[in-house]
Nucleic acid binder design. Structure first.
Length: 558
RNA sequence: AGGGGUAUAGCCAAACGGUAAGGCAACGGACUCUGACUCCGUCAUCUCUUGGUUCAAAUCCAGGUACCCCUGCCA
């Protein structure tokens, strides 16, 4: 399987639209944008949007902007701006010179609001939030016009200027568009354009006392940046008429179009910012970068590669119907990438001692082990074979179950890249716990898996020389939730938290070559899965590895 | 209930009036010094449903049904 980015050139409705726009000459180039609000960390759902926007730009030879949709300083912080930029870069995308902030357009937006006021298309509202809500009507009943709706233009101009000047307290007035209080589309019932907020802004500081709402900022900002295809998620679909109303009524420099796609839903996790934040704040996870979280920082810390996430986004496609992607698709994606690129190593996670009685004490033999079974160009490394080695406890069964083909009493097994050993006896303590296995090895069995009498050995297991191993901590992560859809309505998602979503093993025995493991390198610990050092907690001398994902295992399924 | 959307295999998803792509999963087999990888094969007489138009319908028309979104001074 190839790990190249372009997994398939499958079509989707956005590509079709862009293709037609380009061919018909409606657009001469493609300009998209990824427009996060800097009020939290990015997650895998954002990755889908990032891949769509940057991907489309790349595919059609256009460009993609990174734009912070920073119109609500009450929720936004510089920390999030920094994290978002880092995550987008990590994913492998480059916005070049095109980094923008909606807030850089505040003055222009203000002037356009004045235009609307001047033309009688916007007015200053004195009703409070509760009253506005009551006047708005319901889904089935039309709204009622505000008593301030027909305020004279001059008065509106005066009041709006004074709102800007900071003369009024938060919440005392808003600027509203004058559209249609009876519209069946509620977002057209005189939507709020500006609110008063005496709050400093992370990007423009204390310059403003009033801030535009999303609807009044997004489309115009798209127009200013020359965005041709403004791609957002489905819940903004009913805002599209409003998006277009502003473009129709303001002297904007270009005419962007909004298109919507279905957001990503992943099983066994939660994706809403609110819930993610709740998990972090309540200490239910270790932080925004907890390796069990679907945040990009979490996936990154766990060991997911940017390539695997991009491939995942390509695989799941883009559509307009609500869909649920099983996490196993994400897991399979990182397996595919890592299988290709990860050097192999041996690590025994739950060690049990095996003593080779016919190997001299105090000696060691150097063996060569391939770093990748299908890629000789990745070379090999030296491992040591000696009298005492560690093997995985699971790889020995005193009473083998049917189909088990690893080590059993008086059975034989091949030590990967080493020799065939035969188990002679089991030494236990008085409680019956296995202390060690006593074995013999066949010095002639270095190559292949055939015994001296020509039989083929059934099993191959990983191992590590006791005297040449290092002890390390390994963290095994599982799904954060035990239910495929913890988010389903009517239940508290927290009740579905998987109590065993992390298992910490502190007595793992790793081959010595891992002593100087590079912190970015993902390894395949043979037969156990893919691992990488935890970037925060792993230190020279006390290594900590995270399991990115297990290997596929058809045996345990049976 | 008003408005806006969506229904194609277990999960995604293509198709644009010409006879149901592809991926993942699953299943069967081969290969293998990782029960991994890889390889081969199987997997929708059928597109939510009921009618209609047509030589021909997943695609067009009419009526149902199910689910999602919208009543923040959030985005």
């Amino acid at each position: 399987m190839s790990t190249e980015y372009a997994v398939s050139a499958s079509n989707n409705f956005l590509k079709t639209i862009i293709d037609e726009d380009l061919k018909s000459g409606k657009q001469s180039s493609v300009v998209t944008r990824f427009p996060p609000e800097p009020n939290g960390y990015l997650h895998i759902g954002h990755a889908k949007s990032i891949c769509i926007n940057f991907g489309l730009a790349t595919e059609f030879g256009g460009r993609c902007h990174l734009r912070f949709d920073d119109t609500n300083p009450a929720k936004e912080e510089q920390e999030y701006i920094d994290s978002i930029k880092e995550s987008v870069r990590w994913l492998g995308f480059d916005w070049g010179e095109h980094l923008y902030y909606a807030s850089d357009n505040f003055e222009q937006l203000y002037q356009w609001a004045v235009c609307l006021v001047t033309e009688g298309k916007a007015y200053v509202e004195d009703l409070n939030a509760e009253q506005i809500r009551a006047y708005r009507g319901t889904l089935t009943e039309p709204g009622v016009e505000s008593p301030f709706r027909n305020r004279p233009v001059e008065e509106n101009l005066n009041l709006f200027q004074r709102m800007r000047d900071g003369e009024f307290p938060d919440g005392s007035r808003v600027l509203r568009a004058r559209i249609d209080m009876a519209s069946p589309n509620i977002s057209l019932r005189d939507p709020v354009l500006y609110r008063i907020l005496h709050t400093p802004h992370p990007h423009v500081g204390n310059a403003w006392k009033i801030y535009p709402m999303y609807d009044f900022a997004h489309g115009q900002t798209d127009a200013i940046e020359g965005i041709t295809h403004s791609i957002c998620t489905l819940e903004f679909e009913s805002h599209r008429p409003l998006y277009e109303w502003f473009l129709d009524n303001l002297p904007v420099p270009s005419r962007p179009r909004q298109y919507e796609f279905a957001r990503l839903n992943l099983t066994y996790t939660v994706m809403s910012k609110r819930k993610l934040q709740e998990l972090v704040l309540n200490g239910l996870v270790s932080g925004w970068d907890d390796p069990r979280l679907p945040t990009l920082e979490g996936l990154r810390r766990r060991g997911y590669t940017p390539t695997s996430i991009r491939n995942f986004c390509e695989q799941i496609g883009v559509g307009r119907s609500d869909s649920w992607i099983d996490v196993s698709v994400l897991e399979e994606s990182v397996r595919a990438d890592l299988n290709d690129s990860a050097p192999r190593a041996m690590a025994v996670l739950r060690p049990i001692k095996l003593v080779i009685e016919n190997f001299p004490d105090g000696q060691a033999e150097e063996l060569q082990a391939a770093n990748h079974p299908q890629k000789p160009e990745m070379g090999s490394r030296t491992i040591h074979f000696s009298r005492e080695i560690w093997i995985e406890a699971d790889d020995f069964m005193e009473v083998p179950s049917k189909g088990f083909h690893r080590l059993t009493v008086s059975g034989e097994v091949k030590l990967r890249s080493g020799y065939i050993v035969t188990c002679r006896r089991v030494i236990k303590d008085e409680l019956g716990n296995i202390l060690e296995l006593r074995c013999d090895y066949d010095p002639a069995s270095r190559e292949g898996i055939h015994t001296a009498d020509g039989r083929k050995v059934k099993g191959v297991i990983h191992w590590v020389s006791a005297a040449h191993s290092i002890t390390a901590e390994v963290r095994l992560f599982d799904r954060l939730f035990s239910d495929p859809n913890p988010d389903r309505s009517g239940a508290d998602y927290k009740q579905f938290l998987n109590q065993n979503s992390v298992e910490v093993l502190t007595e793992c025995k790793l081959e010595a070559s891992l002593t100087c493991a590079d912190s970015e390198t993902r390894y395949q610990f043979e037969r156990m899965g893919y691992f990488r050092q935890d970037p925060k907690d792993s230190k020279p001398g006390s290594l900590v590895f995270n399991r990115v994902v297990t290997l596929r295992d058809v045996w345990v399924k049976k």
